[in-house]
Amino acid sequence: MEALTPNTIPRSGQDTAKAPKRKRKGGFWSTVLQQKYLYLMSLPFVIWVFVFSYLPLWGWTMAFQNYKPARSFSEQKWVGFKYFHELFQDDRFYLVLRNTLAMSFMGLILGFVVPIFFAILLNELRGMFFKRFVQTVSYLPHFVSWVVVAGIITKMLSIDGGAVNQILMALHLTDEPIQFMAKGNWFWYIVTGSDVWKETGWNTIIYLAAITGIDPELYEASRVDGASRWRQMWHITLPGIRSTISVLLIMSIGHLISIGFEKQFLLGNNLVTDYSEVLDLYALNYGLNMGRFSYGTAIGIFNSVVSIILLFTANGIFKKVTKESIM
């Protein structure tokens, strides 16, 4: 863009003296004319975003109506904030909110620390073949569906010949096999643990890519100055991928509340519902499945508002602390 603007100066230069305001307007249109191909090329994407991300917001009106399907907009009955009232008065809502936030915070912390750590360790490996091999093996679980992963986890933790219990028994750490899946307060850890197992390798890729972008001269210089491997990691590698880390962190904070429900749905059972039910599952059970579309929409709006607040807060804090921002 910058490169193109100088061309527009001579043309608009004529009426500079008369009307500075008009000059700007004319400047814009001539810019458009100059860059018409760029504008044309971006237009489909603008439309796409508008149609798929902004137009559906119209559906938010449902939350304020007693919505019945197959009736026109004017036939719906308006009820104001009734469904939000109902939502904030339901004890279960606070319970599922707690579960959602607890599991996503745990997931966020481990989901960041472990892949970064892993990426740095991989980067320090000398043998190219071994490095590639480890990397491939570690990201393969990403492609396994949660249904299968849940099956593997339940089987591993089963008391009926599950590998984990057999190891614990063989080491004499316990006498009785432990029912991992029946303990509510362990559920969060099981979910977080399986998430780390499944996604670590995949999340590592982006950090590895960022590390390759670091200038090798920096390492050489530090070696000349006598820096150890640990010093190099701490003073060169980590600062080198700092901006990648902060961008990804801010974006994940925005998604904190919408963690989906597959893991919890597939790993949970009746004994642990107090710990396993998350917001999305609650919206499905008490909203869509009962045909209460308005209530479901109210939950959706709450979700989006919280996400936006989280995103802006996180971005604001980062801006202050690190002078970096994604917006």
Binding site: G151, T154, M181, A182, N270, L271
Partner: peptide, 9 residues
């Protein structure tokens, strides 16, 4: 395992 197992188990 009655209340933990899934139908397939």
């Amino acid at each position: 395992e009655t209340f933990v197992q899934k139908s397939d188990q």
